[in-house]
């Protein structure tokens, strides 16, 4: 009798348990499927771009990467100029953005009065929220004319004559060109780099900084001698993140880079980047043409470039952020 009631009690329990297990299994499967879907998505993206660009790789071989041709009439296409433009603008943007971003991050973490930190930080972060097409318009209608009329003539006159680096700053002050594109890119990636730097600066244990202050160090000495050495790997990671963003930026660059398929030694000369070339020429390419395949092959190269940079950035940031 006792046994019977026990089993009667346990029977519905065991009958209920499988159903909840079923719910668990379905939900876990759902989550895992979504995860695998994301993996497949990136895998498919790589494969699709490669397959679509294959005719161009076949037609031009490895020389596609270095060739500076872009001649739709002769059907001769090469990635040399746009790869050059992509790397030059992105690296120059980093050179311009890093000092600014460091200044902003140092100011926001150590120097600014506490009540001002959040609003100022938000304002800088809003720079990252402005759509890239807006940067393009602003760059084209405001920055480029200002560069052409005031800033570039001055630089050409004063720096263009210098030995060794002078050749970088010669030529006509068009306003648009590699330098302007890098300038706009620098503003666009500034908030990303500054935000990463601010986050990692904040993670330095206060005891470390206090010990240095206790020895009489100034704020700059604490930054230079304690905070920067402690965070340098993550800081480099943040810079790489900015670089990754700058490589693939499309709309802003398309507006201001001048869109010419030649390598000019002067930074004020026009050029193009992979992204700007694809955005401009895609609409004029016929389906199945070698030109379209070349553009997709360029996309594949851009993916490889940004993948390497972003993966490095993530590896560097991971070591610190996970602590």
């Amino acid at each position: 009798m006792v046994n019977a009631t026990a089993s009667a009690h346990s029977a519905p329990k065991s009958a209920r348990r499988p159903s909840s297990n079923l719910g668990d299994r379905i939900f876990a499967l759902l989550c895992q499927t979504a995860g695998v879907f994301v993996l497949i998505l990136l895998g498919a993206l790589i494969i699709e771009l490669f397959i679509a660009g294959l005719p161009a790789f076949r037609a031009f071989g490895v020389a596609f990467v270095t060739s500076t041709d872009w001649d739709p009439v002769r059907e001769a296409f090469g990635a040399g100029v746009s790869i050059y433009g992509t790397i030059v603008t992105a690296v120059l943007a980093i050179l311009l953005a890093v000092p600014l971003a460091f200044g902003v991050a140092f100011f926001l973490t150590e120097l600014a009065p506490p009540w001002a930190r959040r609003p100022l930080g938000t304002a800088i972060e809003l720079l990252a929220a402005v759509p890239s097409i807006i940067y393009g318009m602003w760059g084209f209608f405001v920055i480029a004319p200002a560069f052409a009329q005031n800033i570039q003539p001055w630089i050409i006159e004063n720096i263009g004559e210098l030995p060794l680096i002078g050749f970088l700053f010669q030529g006509a002050p068009f306003g648009t060109g590699l330098f302007t594109a890098a300038f706009i890119l620098a503003i666009m990636i500034l908030p990303f780099i500054a935000a990463t730097m601010r986050d990692v600066f904040d993670q330095v244990p206060p005891v470390f900084k206090e010990s240095a202050y206790g020895l009489g160090a100034t704020k700059w000495e604490v930054m230079k001698g304690v905070v920067l050495p402690y965070t340098r790997i993550s800081v480099v990671g943040g810079i790489m993140l900015g670089l990754g963003r700058a490589l693939g930026e499309t709309m802003a660059v398309t507006f201001v880079i001048g869109n010419a398929n030649r390598i000019s030694t002067s930074l004020f000369g026009p050029g193009n980047t992979i992204a700007s070339l694809v955005a401009l020429e895609f609409g004029e390419s016929e389906i199945g043409s070698l030109k379209l395949a070349s553009l997709l092959a360029l996309g594949f190269i851009l993916f490889l470039l940004s993948f390497v940079v972003l993966a490095t950035s993530r590896y560097l940031l991971r070591s610190r952020l996970k602590v």
């Binding site: 994301v38 998505l41 990136l42 498919a44 993206l45 699709e48 771009l49 679509a52 993140l241 990754g244 963003r245 490589l247 693939g248 930026e249 499309t250 992204a275 694809v278 955005a279 553009l295 997709l296 996309g299 851009l302 993916f303 940004s306 993948f307 972003l310 993966a311 993530r314």
Partner: peptide, 13 residues
């Protein structure tokens, strides 16, 4: 990677 990948590539894909 997808979070920071160039959006133009997603368009091509």
């Amino acid at each position: 990677i997808l979070l920071s990948a160039p959006s133009i590539l997603i368009g091509l894909f």
